[in-house]
Amino acid sequence: PEDLERKVRELQKNGVSPEQIEKILRRDGVDEREVQELVKKVS
C-alpha cells in the first residue's frame, strides 16, 4: 500500500537500516512478501 511505502521511505530517510525496517514491518503485521517488496524498493 501507498502509506506503507511512504513509511518505509521516511524510516530510510531517518537512517534506519533495511534490516530494522524489515523488523518494524513484520512487527506491524505486514505480510512477508510485502515486506520483501518494500525493502527492495528502498535498498
Rank of each mutant, 00 (worst) to 15 (best):
E19R: 09
Q12P: 01
R9K: 10
E19L: 03
S17W: 03
R26D: 04
E32T: 06
P18Q: 11
S17T: 13
E22H: 03
Q20I: 10
N14K: 13
P18M: 15
R9Q: 08
P1D: 11
Q20R: 06
D28T: 08
E2L: 13
G15K: 03
L38N: 02
L11D: 01
E5T: 08
P18A: 12
I24P: 00
V16H: 14
V8K: 01
E10G: 05
D31R: 04
P18Y: 13
S43Q: 13
E2A: 14
R33I: 10
S17M: 06
E5S: 08
I21G: 01
Q20Y: 05
I24W: 00
K40V: 07
Q36K: 12
K41E: 07
E37K: 03
V30R: 04
E2K: 12
S43W: 06
R6D: 09
E19K: 09
I21H: 00
E34S: 12
R27H: 12
E37M: 03
K23I: 14
K40P: 05
E37V: 02
E32I: 09
R26F: 07
I24V: 04
K41D: 06
E19C: 10
S17H: 07
D28S: 13
R33T: 12
Q20S: 07
V35I: 15
V42C: 08
E37S: 05
Q36R: 11
G29R: 00
V16D: 02
Q36A: 09
E32G: 06
S17I: 05
K23V: 13
E19N: 07
L25C: 07
V39H: 03
I21D: 01
R33E: 11
V8L: 05
L38G: 02
V30W: 15
E5R: 10
Q36V: 09
Q20T: 10
K13W: 04
L11F: 04
E19T: 08
E5I: 14
R33G: 10
K7F: 09
R9F: 00
E22N: 03
G15I: 00
R27L: 11
L38V: 13
E19F: 00
E19S: 11
L11I: 01
R26K: 11
P18N: 12
V39T: 04
N14R: 13
D31M: 06
K40E: 13
S43L: 15
Q36D: 09
E5Q: 09
L4R: 06
E37G: 05
K7M: 11
V42W: 00
E34M: 15
Q12V: 15
E2S: 14
E10L: 10
E2D: 12
K13G: 07
E19W: 00
D31V: 05
E5L: 14
G29N: 03
L38I: 14
I21V: 04
D31A: 09
Q12Y: 15
V35M: 06
E22V: 08
E10I: 11
L38Y: 00
P1I: 13
K23C: 10
R26M: 13
N14F: 05
K41T: 08
E37R: 10
E34K: 14
I24D: 04
V30F: 14
Q20A: 10
R9G: 03
D28C: 15
K41S: 11
R33K: 14
G15T: 01
K13T: 07
E34W: 15
Q20F: 05
Q12H: 15
K40Q: 12
K41Y: 01
G15F: 01
K41H: 10
K13H: 09
E34F: 14
G29L: 04
G29M: 04
E10A: 08
V16C: 12
L25Y: 00
V42L: 12
G15L: 03
K13R: 13
I21R: 00
V42A: 09
K7R: 13
R9M: 03
L25N: 01
S43C: 12
D31P: 13
G29Y: 02
S43M: 15
I21P: 01
R26Y: 06
N14V: 08
V39G: 03
V30T: 04
L38S: 04
P18C: 11
G15H: 05
R6Y: 07
D31H: 06
K23D: 15
D28W: 15
L25M: 05
K7Y: 10
D28G: 08
L11P: 00
G29C: 10
K40G: 11
Q12K: 10
Q20M: 12
P1H: 14
L11E: 00
R33V: 11
E32F: 08
E32Y: 06
V8M: 04
V8D: 01
G15A: 03
E2H: 12
G29I: 02
R26P: 03
V42F: 02
E10W: 11
R26S: 10
K7S: 04
L11K: 00
Q12E: 08
K7L: 12
L11G: 00
E37P: 00
E5G: 06
L4T: 05
R6K: 12
L38D: 02
K23T: 11
P18I: 15
L25F: 00
I21L: 05
E2G: 13
V16F: 15
G29W: 02
I24T: 02
E34I: 15
V35H: 01
P18H: 08
E32Q: 07
Q12R: 12
E34N: 09
K13V: 06
L4A: 05
K13P: 01
Q12W: 15
K23H: 08
Q20H: 08
E5C: 06
Q20P: 00
G29Q: 03
S17A: 09
P18S: 10
R26V: 14
R33L: 10
E5F: 05
L38A: 10
P1K: 14
K40W: 01
G15N: 05
Q36F: 00
D3L: 11
S43P: 06
K40C: 09
V8F: 05
G15S: 03
L4K: 03
R33N: 11
E34Y: 14
V16I: 12
Q36G: 09
L4C: 06
E37A: 06
E22F: 01
E32N: 04
R26N: 07
E10M: 09
D31L: 06
K7G: 01
R9N: 05
D3W: 13
E22I: 11
P1E: 11
L25V: 04
